[in-house]
Structures are given as C-alpha cells and as structure tokens.
Design a protein around this nucleic acid. Structure first.
Lengths: 195, 195
DNA sequence: ACCCTTAATCAACAGACCGTCCATAAGAGA
DNA sequence: TCTCTTATGGACGGTCTGTTGATTAAGGGT
C-alpha cells in the first residue's frame, strides 16, 4: 500500500530503527524499542514487518537495490581502459545515493550495525568489476602470485574503506571529492603513501 | 581461578559460543543456548560471566591482547625501511596466533560475528604502523592529495581483507604464505592487478 | 584417606520482550 | 457520507533473562 498513513508509519519506523542502531546497536534493540521511539503501537509494527530481522532485511534490500542500479549504470565507460573498470560515473552515482539515505546507511554500516550489509555491497561492487572486465577483450585480473580471489578482495577493500571512513566522519566531504579519492587511490601502492 | 573444573567449563563455554556464533549468529544466540550446547547448567554460566555481552567482551579482549603482544614484538625491523613499517615478523606472529585460536576468531570475524572486533584489530594494526613511522627519522605518512586518515585506512584495509578471506576460506594456506601475500600486496597499486 | 573449600547443579522467581489475536477507534478515499 | 483500510490498546502464553537458596559433586591440601 502507498496509503498516506502507511507511508508515514514506515518512515517513522525506519527513522526510529536507524536512530536505535546508532544508539544501542542492532543486537540490543527490540521491537518494543522501535515502536516506542517511532511513537506507534507495537501491534502496528507487526502489520508491516514479521519481526526485527524482517525489518532489517527489507530496509537493507531497498538500499542495496538502489545502489545496484547506480553501480550498473555506466554506459560511457571504455571497456579497454583499466581505469574504467571502476567507472567514476558508477561510483559517484552510488555515493550520491548514500548521501540521500545517509541516516540509515551510516547506522547499518557503522560499528553497531550489520556487518553483512557491507559484505553484500562488496559483492555487488565485485560483480560490477567482473562485468567490466568481461566486457573488455584485453583486460583480465592477473595474478602476480596472487590467487584471483585475494586480488579481487584487495581491489575492493580500499574502495570500501574510503566509503566507511566517509560515513563515520559524518559525510563532510562531497560525493565528488570521495569519488575522486577512490579514483586516485587505485593508482597508488600502499607503500607509496609513505615517503 | 585456575581450578581444573573451572578451566574445563570455560573451555566448553568458549567452544559452544564459537559454534553458535557460526551457526545462528551472535545476535540470535542466547545464554540458554550456550549452556545447553556446552552441556552445563545455565546457572553455572552466571558464575563466570555477567551476561552474553560480558562473555563476548572477555573472549575478544583475550584474543586482542595476544594479537597486540605479537604485533608489537618486532625488534629487528629497520626503522628507515618503508617495507619494515609493516614488519613481516609481526604479521607472521599475529597470523600464527590466529591459527592457534582459529575456531573462535573465524566465528567472531565472520559474517555473523562481531563487526567491532575487526575494527579494534584494525586500530591495533594502525597503532603499530604509527609506532614504526615514529621510530624513523625519515619516514612519514605522506598525503598525495589524501587526508592522512584516509591514507591510513587504505593502508590497513588491504591487510585486513587478505586476513578475512583467509579465515573465511578455512585457513587452508599457511601463516607464512599469507604473511608473504600481505608483504607483496604492499608494493602493488590496485590497477596493477589488471593487465 | 581425610576434610574442607570451591564449583556445579537444580528448581523457582519476577520481569522483559516476544508474536498473536480481537475488539474498537481513527482516518483516507470514493 | 459511507466504506474499507490502518492504527490502537489490551490481553494471551511462551521464551529468555538474571538472581537466589538449597543441595550435590569434585578438587586440593595436609
């Protein structure tokens, strides 16, 4: 239903949930807490969600779908340019969505949130990279003594680390600044940060 | 107490806890579960721990202390060699401890474990790197357009990513192999994994 | 082998939250 | 205005919690 009161109630639940994840952690919060904080009856919660886990899953799925959309919209990326394996356009789009849904995403990604969420996002990012590599006739994930799996994780981890820090710092920088940092970081070996 | 039965009971609790974290996740497991699985009376649990959170914290602290010890024992590292900012010796020592305490660490780091644990470990690793940089007269974390904070996180993330994957793959490789991979990864920019 | 300390067991307690139900009130839409 | 949907409020039995008190079992010291 896109009923007015339904929308209002669901928004209140999402807002309360985000607050509570930040405040007392996903583990500790209860359905009673959510209802109390959202200012709704506990029974009303159960009209919309099966339980706490269902709420978490629905909210996460919505966010991941939106992120997926943006990550995979990178039409004008050059298939054979290694730099475009992680298209600026796609990263920026995703970061802009993060900014729009900041309260929830910060909470769920944060230290008291759900570890699995970032794991699933990492998976999406990996798929995008795989897709870009597949599009190219010349590029592939080379080994350099690294099992393919490990190489991929190392590639992903830097991107996710930057995004996580951005979130925990409160999103001070603009999505453009972060996208640029991610872009630049791809060209630097860890030791090059030392001089 | 180092009483025989105390030691036996605590071991049973830790083992049961690790199993249950792996199986149903840290969120969902209860003290009743732990007691049942460990084959002890629920009351006995409360003779040793305040509650589930206390158990988690005690086990995590023990592990982090042991890791800290090994990370900070790197006497023969060259202060002015950038490569020794992350001394092979220290990394290997830490990985060997992980192998010893594998069941627990895999569970707590895993997708249904405690996100905060890795966060704290990341902090320790960061401190070690800061300490090594401080020892040197010539080295420092340079910017290259990166805020210091972001540079540090990118440095850390690759190391942690490799360790996480090692854990989730069941620790097939030896600590030496992983330590070598971490060592080598420091010299490669993400795009160099593509050819 | 003995006693005595310490740990583990068992049963019972009130309190919190759970998931469900039903009767009632409020409100949105035609 | 009338109707259909959503929200409310209260009550149910059930599970888990943290604590207590009485009892049994095991360990260590001499």
């Amino acid at each position: 239903m896109t009923n007015r009161s339904t929308v209002r109630t669901k928004k209140a639940i999402k807002h309360a949930f985000s607050e509570l994840v930040e405040e007392k952690g996903l583990d500790s919060l209860t359905v009673s807490d959510v209802a109390r904080t959202a200012g709704i009856n506990r029974g009303t919660f159960y009209l919309h969600y099966v339980d706490k886990d269902d709420l978490k899953n629905q909210l996460e799925s919505e966010a991941l779908e939106s992120l997926q959309e943006r990550l995979f919209s990178n039409e004008n990326a050059d298939p054979d340019d290694p730099v475009d394996v992680i298209p600026y356009e796609a990263i920026l789009g995703a970061l802009e969505y993060v900014q729009d849904d900041f309260e929830f995403i910060r909470a769920i990604v944060g230290p008291r949130g759900d570890h699995a969420f970032l794991g699933r996002f990492r998976g999406q990012l990996g798929q995008m990279i795989e897709k870009q590599i597949a599009k190219s006739s010349t590029l592939r994930l080379s080994m350099k003594g690294f099992p393919r799996e490990y190489a991929m994780q190392v590639m992903l981890s830097g991107i996710v680390a930057i995004t996580e820090l951005w979130l925990s710092n409160g999103g001070k920088e603009s999505p453009e600044e972060i996208a640029t940092m991610i872009h630049e970081s791809r060209k630097l070996a860890p030791y090059e940060f030392l001089k």
